[in-house]
Design a protein around this nucleic acid. Structure first.
Lengths: 149, 149
DNA sequence: CTTGACTCTATAGTCGCTATAGGGTTTTAA
DNA sequence: TTAAAACCCTATAGCGACTATAGAGTCAAG
């Protein structure tokens, strides 16, 4: 069953530009074209893209996805490394959760500095931010695993 | 007390390049220079930079920090909006935590698909990723608040 | 045939940094 | 005093995963 890029995009809940991006990044192999140079996709590409999107929905990096797909493309390979990769990724997520929870505690503590005053001059939040947060302030979380934004 | 950029960097735990970046981004006002064109900073800049770094350690965006600093620079302004901003930011963080926890659950569930087999062909993880995750798969989290990476 | 929808490539931008090239200035040690 | 090391400067590019836009071509429907 052949589809143009827009159909594939709708089928997999992906932006057209993102599909082209994945092709440029080597995640999706190039496909056949019409005489008018339109891409034509079949089931294999649709499955592959679904795999990628599922991984992305699990917050895996494109590099991690590349590793997983290497195993998917090599059915006789030992898949121990898939487990390892997933364990590592789970570890990243758990660490990020812990960091965000600490951050949330700090923010809620900071929020409590605001009393009844309505002037910026007396704002407990601004003052606290000026002097450094009392609990672990100034320590920026690991760059490898970004934060809330 | 006057400092060159390296001293300011050490004092505030910031990279020199980041200080220059903040100046370009308008977060730090430009400062005086030596004849040799070296920047010279005083206490006001050090305090301002500390404020910025404290906010960054709380994962606030530069835009959020800009808003906070507007109030810091206007002591007679009503600081209700500071509260609002912080509440909003806390909300983002809480939402991100919830998303990551759901993600962690999904990942652990996926991890359990891997039985004793050692071949990629039979890998429960890869197969599950190919067919879509059974619980809320394919839904990519909000872009505004990024995830584990 | 015309128009609207779709497709294409190339490029730039988002966010918050971080690194590097190429060059100038200051400080330190011999 | 001189040379080397440390520091400073600007400009630009890169990171990751997209996303947007310009300008142009193709296709399908009326």
């Amino acid at each position: 069953m052949s589809m143009k890029i827009g159909e594939l995009a709708r089928l997999t809940g992906t932006q057209v530009e993102t599909i082209r991006y994945y092709e440029r990044e080597g995640l999706l192999p190039e496909t056949t074209r019409t005489e008018g140079n339109f891409r034509i996709y079949g089931n294999a590409h649709a499955e592959r893209l679904s795999f990628i999107r599922n991984c992305r929905s699990l917050d895996m990096t494109l590099d991690e996805i590349r590793v997983l797909m290497r195993f998917r493309d090599a059915p006789d390979e030992n898949c121990e490394k898939v487990n390892k990769l997933l364990d590592s990724h789970i570890g990243h997520v758990a660490k990020r959760i812990a960091e965000l929870m600490r951050l949330e505690d700090q923010l809620r503590e900071l929020r409590r500095q605001c009393g009844a005053s309505r002037l910026a001059r007396d704002c407990g939040i601004l003052n606290e931010l000026s002097q450094g947060c009392s609990d672990g302030g100034g320590k920026i979380a690991s760059k490898h695993v970004p934060g809330a934004h």
